[in-house]
Nucleic acid binder design. Structure first.
Lengths: 337, 337
DNA sequence: CTGTTAGCGCCTTCAC
DNA sequence: GTGAAGGCGCTAACAG
């Protein structure tokens, strides 16, 4: 194979390469007819400007990088689709990378994207990410960044998050209103912001209803099915089951349900369960899982808009936090009768 | 911010840029001490070779492109993790793109990856992909390619597929052995290879057991929950329900179950359901869904190995098809008692 | 072992 | 309106 270059086109047309270049970057003066002719011939020859060379020169691509911790659950994929829909319209392509909840991989992902001169990065932190030096450096360099969902408050960049506190509060209150007073919150890793907000909402709902609660009602776990399963299995073996679980997300809730069902414990009769960040599976499992529904797709859109705004305005990383709201999808798993 | 370049480092050390270059590409003769010193100084200065410039020169990156039709379901994400695990070890990074089951987007994805000089592409075709001119061109150019799962037989490249025929045959036979004779296959789009293989297995299982079957037992649909739901809702409204559904994948099966449950039809008492390409959700839904379990992660690994082999050996696109086998996970949704 | 030099493919200022 | 020429940052001969 032979890559056809701007030189080949120039030769074929017996003109200079700059003329060809101009034809492809229509911000220059060029006679319309020559422009047309060049584009036509180029097309025929199968020429298109080499974006690598272009990047070397202009230090920008029309690519956007997205880094997510995982995509086995539909949450992040849905966000990504929202991001994509915004950017595709503007002629950008999205490069997706997943850190597998691993800090080291996350760093490498970011580095690769920077290496590829993506015009900006949209990121949700991995479960492990504690240190943010790398991101800090990017910010200092003026690299356009947007954080979503799992953010680090100390980073001065635009962020999109859900109103985790509020909806965790409501979810907890919902269980309390079912007459349950002994609840446990399966919390996310505590260095991630949303974990703390959700835990706080859980606590405050108790306080509002004057129900005693302490740190013992909160168990830190991960974001995966296995995490919920493990913790609940342990509680069962220790005979420490509560009347209800408020879970940091749906996978954890499903893991909890799996462990409960495995031991013949009835949901919601014996133990009620409520999830968070509703997944499409919530209504398909047995019993259907109550959950906090969040505008996932929209979160992607908003994140994309925030990044686009930076790129188009050339104003980088002015902190601004967009808080999205949700709703409570009440299903069988949380309703005592 | 200022990008520090090889020249800056050379100046700081008072040596030539080639020496610095050599220090970073340890395939050349260079005195160990100078090498060490250069690396040290470069590190201090915050220098690392610009991969864009490198690509422009060498026409190769250490990036691999992966294009999948969707990732809302865990199937493709699992495959991708398999791919990643192989390549990360070898120092490659994976750029993921999703075509959203849209042919046009798939083309643009491929173009973007090629533009970024990825060293090879692993691809699963979108539901819409019919035309393969673009891929044909890539193959002619000697671009390393591997197809998986949703392949196009006419393309002469390495492929990884499941033994769709066999396991669809077994899944169907399993329902027949439950005493069911009136089955319907919810098939995938018919221009996709696996759809046909699975449909064929469905047919042949009937023939083996001398059960009449015709094309009317096969309904072409898509790969998504909504597709299964739509078709089954229609069957219900027309009062045309069979005794069992053999579905092209789990989402379709879940869609079918959703429609059935919505109309109060009992699974498996009234209608049995079996899926394909087992997802983690299969055992969580109600009733637990029988499905064909496939070594998804391994599919990614194999695809990655096939691509790596090409890249490392410099022998491109020698057709070779790896067929992976699976197993049947029998759960409640398909067991009549 | 190290330095010099010619590109990779393109954009862009400067002449004309 | 168009051509010539100098880089972008790096690698890879080719000398020494």
């Amino acid at each position: 194979m032979k890559h056809v270059t701007i030189i080949d086109v120039a030769k074929a047309l017996n003109c200079s390469i700059s003329t060809v270049s101009r034809a492809f970057n229509d911000k220059y003066d060029i006679r319309p007819e020559t422009r047309e002719k060049i584009l036509k011939v180029a097309e025929d020859m199968g020429y298109s400007p080499n974006p690598i060379a272009r990047k070397l020169k202009q230090k920008c691509s029309y690519n956007i990088g997205v880094v997510v911790p995982e995509f086995l659950n539909p949450f992040f994929p849905e966000v990504i689709i929202g991001i994509q829909d915004v950017f595709l319209k503007k002629g950008y392509q999205i490069l997706i990378m997943q850190s597998n909840e691993c800090y080291q991989t996350e760093l490498e992902n970011l580095q690769t994207l920077v290496d590829n001169f993506v015009d900006g990065i949209i990121l949700s932190l991995s479960q492990e990410s504690k240190n943010s030096n790398f991101l800090q450096k990017l910010i200092e360099k003026g690299y356009p960044l947007v954080l979503f969902n799992r953010v680090n408050e100390s980073l001065a960049v635009p962020k999109v998050v859900f109103d985790d506190y509020k909806w965790s509060f409501f979810a907890t209150e919902h269980l309390i209103q079912q007459g349950l007073t002994k609840l446990i919150h399966l919390a996310g890793p505590n260095h991630i912001n949303l974990s703390n907000s959700r835990a706080q909402g859980f606590m405050d709902a108790h306080r509002k209803h004057k129900i005693p609660v302490s740190n013992k009602n909160i168990i830190e776990t991960g974001f995966l099915v296995v995490d919920g399963e493990r913790v609940v299995a342990k509680l069962i073996s220790e005979n420490m089951l509560p009347e209800g679980f408020v879970c940091v997300n749906d996978p954890t809730a499903m893991g909890a349900m799996k462990a409960l069902k495995h031991h013949g414990i009835k949901i919601p009769k014996d133990v009620a369960v409520i999830g968070f960040s509703e997944t499409p599976m919530a209504e398909l499992i047995d019993p259907p899982l109550s959950s906090v529904k969040q505008p996932t797709y929209q979160m992607g859109e908003v994140a994309a808009e925030l990044l686009l705004k930076q790129i188009e305005s050339n104003m980088f990383n002015i902190p601004e936090t967009v808080v999205l709201s949700g709703s409570l999808s009440v299903r069988e798993s949380s309703v005592k009768r």
